[in-house]
Amino acid sequence: MGANQSAVYDDSNDFSGVVMPRRFGRILSFSSSSKWKSHLQVTRKTNKLMVIHFTAAWCGPCRTMDPVIREFAGIYAGVEFIKIDVDELEDVAREYAVQALPAFVLIKKGKAVDKVVGAEKIALQKKIETYMN
C-alpha cells in the first residue's frame, strides 16, 4: 500500500486492502495521518470503543499479537480495531506516547481511556471488556 492509503486488511491470507472474512471481524489499517485524523473525528461522535494496535513490521511480539487481534475482532463485533505501523505514522505514535511495542491504546469518544503495552492478551481482553459498554 502507498503512504496515502488506508484499508481494511486481511493479513491471514497476505492480501492487503481487502475485507476480512466475517468470522474474523474487521480491522482497519491507516497509512495516512490525515485519513487517521478524519476517522478519529468521526468516532468522537459515537460511544464505540476503538482499540489501536501500534505495531511495526520488524517487531516479533507485534506479529504474535496479530492473530489475537483478529480473534478479538471476531468476538467483539461492537469494538473497532485499528492497526497503525509506527514507522509509517510516527506522528500518531508520538501523539499517544508509544515508546514500546506492541502497544494498544483504547479510545472512546476520541479520547484515550487506557493503554496496554506488550504482548499481553489477557490484560488487553480485560480492558476491552471493561470499556466496551
Rank of each mutant, 00 (worst) to 15 (best):
residue 4 N to L: 13
residue 4 N to G: 13
residue 5 Q to E: 15
residue 5 Q to N: 10
residue 6 S to Q: 07
residue 7 A to P: 02
residue 9 Y to A: 14
residue 10 D to N: 15
residue 13 N to R: 01
residue 14 D to H: 06
residue 17 G to V: 03
residue 22 R to D: 15
residue 23 R to C: 10
residue 23 R to D: 13
residue 24 F to Y: 13
residue 25 G to V: 09
residue 27 I to L: 12
residue 28 L to A: 12
residue 28 L to I: 06
residue 29 S to L: 04
residue 30 F to A: 03
residue 31 S to D: 11
residue 32 S to F: 02
residue 33 S to A: 10
residue 34 S to Q: 12
residue 35 K to A: 14
residue 36 W to S: 04
residue 38 S to I: 03
residue 38 S to A: 04
residue 40 L to F: 11
residue 41 Q to N: 11
residue 42 V to D: 15
residue 43 T to M: 15
residue 43 T to N: 13
residue 45 K to F: 14
residue 46 T to H: 02
residue 47 N to E: 14
residue 47 N to A: 12
residue 47 N to V: 12
residue 47 N to S: 14
residue 48 K to Y: 12
residue 49 L to N: 05
residue 49 L to W: 08
residue 50 M to W: 06
residue 50 M to I: 14
residue 52 I to Y: 05
residue 57 A to R: 07
residue 57 A to E: 15
residue 57 A to K: 09
residue 58 W to Q: 07
residue 60 G to D: 14
residue 60 G to S: 09
residue 61 P to E: 14
residue 63 R to K: 15
residue 63 R to C: 11
residue 65 M to Y: 00
residue 68 V to Q: 08
residue 69 I to V: 15
residue 71 E to F: 04
residue 73 A to C: 07
residue 74 G to Q: 00
residue 74 G to H: 01
residue 75 I to K: 12
residue 76 Y to R: 02
residue 76 Y to L: 08
residue 77 A to F: 04
residue 79 V to T: 11
residue 81 F to N: 02
residue 81 F to P: 10
residue 81 F to H: 00
residue 81 F to C: 12
residue 82 I to V: 15
residue 83 K to P: 02
residue 83 K to E: 14
residue 84 I to N: 10
residue 87 D to G: 06
residue 88 E to A: 13
residue 88 E to N: 09
residue 89 L to S: 03
residue 89 L to M: 10
residue 91 D to I: 05
residue 91 D to M: 06
residue 92 V to T: 11
residue 93 A to T: 00
residue 94 R to A: 11
residue 97 A to F: 09
residue 97 A to K: 11
residue 97 A to E: 15
residue 98 V to W: 01
residue 101 L to S: 11
residue 101 L to C: 06
residue 104 F to V: 09
residue 104 F to M: 15
residue 106 L to G: 03
residue 106 L to V: 02
residue 108 K to R: 14
residue 108 K to V: 13
residue 109 K to P: 03
residue 110 G to W: 08
residue 111 K to H: 07
residue 112 A to C: 01
residue 115 K to I: 05
residue 115 K to Q: 13
residue 117 V to W: 01
residue 117 V to T: 10
residue 118 G to R: 06
residue 118 G to K: 02
residue 121 K to V: 06
residue 122 I to V: 13
residue 123 A to V: 09
residue 124 L to V: 05
residue 126 K to W: 00
residue 128 I to M: 12
residue 129 E to Y: 07
residue 131 Y to I: 06
residue 131 Y to T: 02
residue 131 Y to N: 04
